[in-house]
Nucleic acid binder design. Structure first.
Lengths: 195, 195, 195, 195
DNA sequence: TATGAATGAGCATTCATTCAT
DNA sequence: GATGAATGAATGCTCATTCAT
């Protein structure tokens, strides 16, 4: 998402960047097209020349964001890794992504729960990411190295654990110590709290 | 909150119930006072007779909800339980609460991320619940039965794991199998994925 | 008005007093029945038990106020006074009244200009006061001691001169020096600016 | 204000004109933005595109009106006139202005008395006009041709005399005979009622 | 007499969207 | 491609008035 964007300097891109800023600062409803236009140094009509509606602009944005997270993780899940290593990689990548794109992640967590079409769409995207985790869990189970838990439950649990823990720190006051968070989550996810 | 509410049939309560419905369906911004009034079969002015503003109505609602979750859990965390049993209890209670008050939980997950005062307030409430978990984790560490992970990280991780996994099922199509979810999360949280 | 009021301690009177305070502070439109009820330490319904409407309450209030000014002046305009002395008396009385009932006078000046029934009513009241002045001017003209100016013009001019000059001081920062104001207005009204 | 306004036919101007009409008819509080929009044949949103708020629109309006009166008078107060001629000129101009802009003058007299910021602002504007009169009175005193009255008292008295007398006629039923009113006020202001 | 909960019409303001240039 | 003036439906909130007790 953001990477691609930095290459071109088209109006479309200016708008896109501005939209990320504004949506993450204010949320979908509170953000106005005027805000975005001002941030992009573009006339309001110009946004409508490039995007059909506020909704569509937002959808594009979230789509690219989730895709980026998913692809980033997927591309690193090479065949030579063990299930355990894959889980570690997923946790590390997700923690890193949340640190790098905090604002986008706030959007995601804010706007994915509800019954509007947009929100259903977002949950579908998130599920496509969770599916990656589920696949790894299944592999582990098939290989006999993981306990017999529902892959779906494990997928959402691991995503949720990392997401909420990351945002909890990022939206609090302290520093975001990615290494400590990773080490703690890895401990819990793989070996549990109990000694 | 909801329990007490069901007993009385005051206007205040009608409004409260309607507000839960509407806010969870549409979120804070999209929900209108007209919606809530219509759902409660009350004139719009009546809402303002009982609550100072939309914001205040919402705040009350979330306050009572989180308090109910927190107190429900806290009251059951008796001294005779081991840390392991306490973690199990917390997971079971939270899973049950999410099943019972799905709409409220959607509200909580939707509206807690952002920089508005209201949102800061919500996160503070959630933190007061997480603190319960942190305390138990600390106990376990002190007793030498839990691994040495940051209690804060563990607290947000366990809350997030259960919250997201629960909502993932509740907002999907399938049934909400509390027992299976509990058993899976207990497994991961206490002993991890690895055999 | 105010004098009579202080004698009784009925609810009606409590409301009346509160209404004067609130109306003069906020004006007719901005003043609310809640304000008045709170100031009178009375339930809102009680006001409606004693007065038919906000409008009526206001009307009563202004009626009594103007009547008090008019009667106060009229009762002192004894037959033994010369027209010149009468003009002096009118000026002195009006200046004194404005000083004593500043808030009420603000109401009067605020709410008398417009086309609503209430406002027409107020102007009629004011005209009944101006009529006193006109009569004196006519007397002076008939007696050959006043110049030949339209009595009506003179009446409104003298009322306006004293009213605006008084409020100009009363709403400004300085002290309200009634004697100096009287002496200046007397000078202008009777002998003019020119030496 | 009005003069310039009549030249252009911009939306801004349409709104401005409509606002004068509506505010003078109903007063600030009772006038609604819907009224103004309807009168201007403009969508309500259009008003907000050109003016930040009802308050701001109103303020602009009064500002320009008073400024027009002040400048109109000031520009004619040339050095070659005697104090007496200047007072005459001021009276004539003010009487003419009130006749020409009756509605605006109603607004001014209605909305200048109270403690709201807006009203303080208006009184400040009026004082800037009164200052013109005070200066002339001072000149007359310095030149030894006027009696020794407080310039401030004389300023507010002359303004008030002309304002109230003018509106008294304009809001009554009869014709507005500017010449007679001028001749009467000149008589009183310069030479007084007494022969 | 007195109360205060309930009402609903009314209002200022916002903002996504359109469209003539 | 780009603009920004214009739109009008939508919304949170107010407040005079009513009425059951």
């Amino acid at each position: 998402m953001m990477k691609v964007m930095f290459l071109r300097k088209s109006k479309t891109n200016l708008i896109f960047q501005a939209a990320i800023d504004v949506f993450s600062e204010k949320g979908f409803d509170k953000a106005t097209m005027d805000d975005i236009a001002a941030r992009a140094n573009v006339a309001k009509g110009t946004i409508y020349y490039h995007f059909k509606s506020k909704e569509e602009l937002f959808l594009f944005l979230v789509e690219e964001g989730v895709e980026m997270l998913r692809e980033g993780v997927e591309s690193k899940l090479t065949e030579d890794l063990t299930p355990r290593e894959k889980i570690e990689l997923i946790l590390r990548e997700q923690i890193s992504f949340f640190g790098q794109y905090r604002d986008f992640c706030v959007i995601l967590l804010r706007e994915s729960w509800g019954a509007e079409d947009r929100q259903l769409e977002f949950r579908k995207m998130i599920r496509s990411y969770m599916a990656l985790i589920e696949k790894v869990v299944q592999e582990g189970k098939d290989a006999g190295v993981f306990h017999d838990v529902s892959a779906e439950n494990a997928g959402s649990a691991l995503f949720g654990m990392a997401a909420i823990a990351a945002l909890h720190i990022l939206l609090g006051k302290g520093d975001y110590d990615e290494d400590k968070l990773f080490s703690d989550l890895k401990q819990i996810a793989l070996s549990g709290l109990l000694k």
